[in-house]
């Protein structure tokens, strides 16, 4: 059986766990802990190791979704998770611009691990103060040839759209490499 892997990364509290939960066919295995730092107390729990979701395609093919830990002190996991990935999604919290610098840093780090395609998902588009995907693109200095997509991690359809756009980019990348 062939297994393929995609990584869902992004700053603390960007919505990575919810994103994977929306499309995984198994209960997402997450290692959550109570937040201990006051500075990061914007939610009760955080993922300290990683999330893990699965989508079975057929008897011969399975897609695994790995979510990275949100807090910087667990970034030693990033390189491990990035090994052999088909592509990755950088999830951005569109209502917390103070996390954009961190998102940019994460993007640079993951791009350095592997030259696989990626997309940016501007999450929490359902909230009134959300920055638009285009504004997120500018804030993060994302090239025009990289897709920046709006999404709501709890909404399956928008999550599917992000994954599909990533897969289209992967396909285009494969075709370009062949030419």
């Amino acid at each position: 059986m062939q297994t393929v892997k995609m990584v869902i990364t992004g700053p603390f509290s960007a919505g990575k766990t919810e994103f994977i939960q929306s499309v995984s066919e198994i209960d997402v295995v997450a290692t959550e802990r109570k937040i201990s730092s006051d500075a990061e107390r914007v939610k009760e729990d955080t993922t300290v190791a990683m999330d893990f979701g699965r989508i079975t395609v057929d008897d011969d093919l399975v897609l695994y979704l790995f979510g990275t830990p949100g807090q910087r002190r667990f970034d030693f996991m990033w390189e491990i998770l990035s090994e052999g990935m088909l592509g990755f999604v950088v999830l951005v919290d569109s209502v917390r611009p103070e996390t954009f610098r961190e998102a940019r840093h994460i993007l640079e780090v993951f791009s350095s691990y592997a030259s696989t395609p990626y997309v940016i998902a501007a999450n929490k588009q359902d909230l009134p103060d959300a920055w638009s995907p285009e504004d997120v693109r500018i804030a993060l200095k994302i090239d025009r040839d990289v897709k920046v997509l709006g999404c709501v991690a709890r909404d399956k359809e928008t999550v599917k759209n992000v994954l599909l756009e990533l897969l289209y980019s992967i396909l285009e990348n494969m075709q370009a490499e062949e030419e």
């Binding site: 393929v4 395609v57 093919l61 897609l63 399956k156 599917k160 992967i170």
Partner: peptide, 12 residues
């Protein structure tokens, strides 16, 4: 493989 993944995700 990628095409199969696309088809599968569309059906979720």
């Amino acid at each position: 493989v990628v095409t199969k993944l696309i088809d599968r995700i569309k059906r979720i």
